[in-house]
């Protein structure tokens, strides 16, 4: 990879200041960034590590919200969210593999917004709030297509606030090589209704499946969406699955998530 200057600030303010420099990029767990730098697809002049900032780490219940610091690893979420939000903890425990989960962070995943990543499904599927160093962004506004988010240059995620659903589950069909989601569904039932977010399937990245949400809001059961089909238009087609297959999996995984959420 190209060389760069490495800095590791200990406060959010210092990190934001460092990121204002030319060609500066944040580094969180690095589980996606470092491989892309090895392939020379990414060439930061300065890499600003966010893993030395204590206030960015932790899982904390605040009323009916679960607040997770951006630099919290998947492994810690899998462990510390289990009591308050088991659906989210289970999702975190399925990301990558154990070693990846020990480094990769929720903030890094959401900032990258890989179309096959797991966390975007939970954030969109609960209507979470993405808290940054300068503002709060609702999940519905945050995800703007594959690898595209509402984040501005130099803006860093500091925390994610998840509304805790009454019931939730994540059903992931694994792409066998990368172990990302070939297609996965996160389903969350709230007092106000049901949200369904799909990752891995669409060329536009994570999306909400409105028809399923409507059907499930009136009857939260797998049978309620048995006849629903998702359109294969704009679905990803690659050597792991056709667009039609992914569209089909959207239904299967959503039904399985509903069944698991109970």
């Amino acid at each position: 990879m190209y060389n760069f200057d490495f800095v590791k600030p200990s406060s959010i303010a210092d990190a934001v200041a460092a990121l204002a420099g030319e060609d500066a990029q944040p580094l969180s767990g690095g589980q996606t960034l470092i491989p892309s730098m090895k392939a020379r697809l990414n060439a930061p002049g300065t890499l600003v590590s966010l893993t030395g900032i204590p206030e960015l780490v932790g899982v904390c219940r605040e009323g009916d919200m679960l607040v997770i610091g951006a630099a919290t690893t998947h492994a810690q979420v899998a462990r510390d969210a289990a009591a308050d939000f088991p659906g989210l903890a289970a999702l975190a425990g399925q990301i990558g593999d154990p070693a990846v989960r020990n480094r990769g962070t929720i903030g890094g995943s959401l900032a990258n917004n890989d179309p096959s990543a797991c966390y975007p499904a939970a954030a969109l599927g609960t209507g979470a709030t993405i808290v940054t160093d300068r503002r709060e962004i609702g999940a519905d506004d945050y995800f703007q297509g594959m690898f595209t988010t509402a984040l501005e240059e130099g803006e860093i995620i500091t925390a994610v606030r998840f509304p805790i659903p009454q019931a939730s589950a994540y059903a992931k069909f694994v792409q066998p090589a990368s172990r990302f989601a070939l297609t996965a569904a996160f389903v969350a039932r709230f007092e106000s209704g049901v949200r369904v977010a799909i990752t891995g399937a669409s060329e536009n990245g994570v999306f909400r499946w409105a028809e399923a949400e409507a059907a499930l809001s009136s009857d939260f059961s797998a049978d309620a969406i048995a006849g629903l089909a998702c359109s294969p238009d704009e679905m990803i087609a690659d050597l792991h699955g056709t667009a039609a297959y992914r569209a089909h999996l959207v239904g299967v995984m959503t039904r399985r998530a509903v069944a698991a959420a109970g």
């Binding site: 066998p176 090589a177 990368s178 690659d238 050597l239 792991h240």
Partner: peptide
């Protein structure tokens, strides 16, 4: 090559 790494070549 579409399967040029372990991200796409399923070991």
């Amino acid at each position: 090559l579409l399967s040029g790494s372990y991200m796409d070549y399923a070991m």
